[in-house]
């Protein structure tokens, strides 16, 4: 177990800074869930946030998406202060999320779930984008095309995860924030999901903030990694350097 904060000079990262989270502290009632968390994400970068259960990973996403109000700190996205904004304002700025537990609309059809993803776009933009977006989503996940008229809650776990990701993409985001997209998926499916995320970053120019408990799968596609422990950033560094560090390997990747 290493206690020293492992850090890579931030200047070594290329690309312009897109999202900056500065000294965020958040509470559930009196219990502190996040303690002075600072991180940044550059455009077209995949940043993984790792850590065990209860480390504060999901809380961080809840703060970012506007579901939870934080007490201290600042979130800047593309140079604009978005701290404390409501979820609809955050998504309009270009941050879409795939939440923990997917939060789909089970009794509604796959098609309706996807269409609702574009809810915040104005009518004109929806008309322009919807068809192209649907095509892109079917290209990424061909199975969704066959399930279009089916109720969302009749899909398998993997298909539901694809739908949740598809719904987020419908909002035409710049940044995707995902909360444990590998949870409950078969290993094959996890690999496919990670490959898709890499593709979204490479081919479609999205930035991705990936919260994961499956550290091995996440670190393989990530550019930069933050490891949270009890609500604090314990370790940060480029993905390759973290993978090479033997003590970190033991502590966080089980070997």
């Amino acid at each position: 177990m290493t206690d020293s904060t492992y850090s890579q000079p931030v200047t070594s990262r290329t690309g312009e800074c897109q999202l900056r989270i500065d000294g965020i502290s958040a509470f559930y009632g009196e219990a502190q869930a996040l303690r002075d968390v600072t991180l940044r994400l550059n455009s077209q970068e995949i940043v993984a946030i790792l850590g065990s259960n209860g480390a504060g990973k999901s809380t961080l996403l809840r703060v970012l998406t506007g579901l939870l109000k934080h007490r201290q700190g600042r979130i800047t996205f593309k140079g604009e202060d978005i701290s404390g904004k409501e979820p609809d304002a955050v998504i309009k700025k270009g941050i879409a999320s795939v939440p923990e537990g997917r939060e789909l609309f089970g009794p509604m059809t796959v098609h309706d779930n996807l269409l609702l993803g574009a809810y915040t776009l104005d009518k004109q933009k929806r008309k322009e984008l919807n068809d192209a977006r649907l095509k892109m989503i079917f290209d990424l996940f061909p199975v969704l095309r066959d399930r279009l008229g089916q109720r969302a809650d009749t899909l398998s776990g993997g298909e539901q995860q694809m739908l949740a990701l598809g719904r987020a993409l419908m909002a035409n985001p710049v940044l995707l924030a995902l909360d444990e997209p590998s949870l409950g998926l078969a290993p094959m499916m996890v690999a496919t999901m990670m490959k898709t995320l890499k593709r979204l970053c490479k081919d479609y120019g999205l930035s991705i903030l990936l919260v994961e408990q499956n550290a091995k799968a996440a670190i393989e596609i990530a550019d930069y990694v933050y490891i949270l422990e009890r609500g604090e950033v314990r370790v940060e560094g480029a993905a390759c350097s973290i993978m090479d560090d033997a003590s970190l390997q033991r502590a966080y990747f089980g070997g």
Partner: peptide, 11 residues
Amino acid sequence: INQVGARLIGI
């Protein structure tokens, strides 16, 4: 159906 989901897509 799902208030959290609804808020997250911007409703």
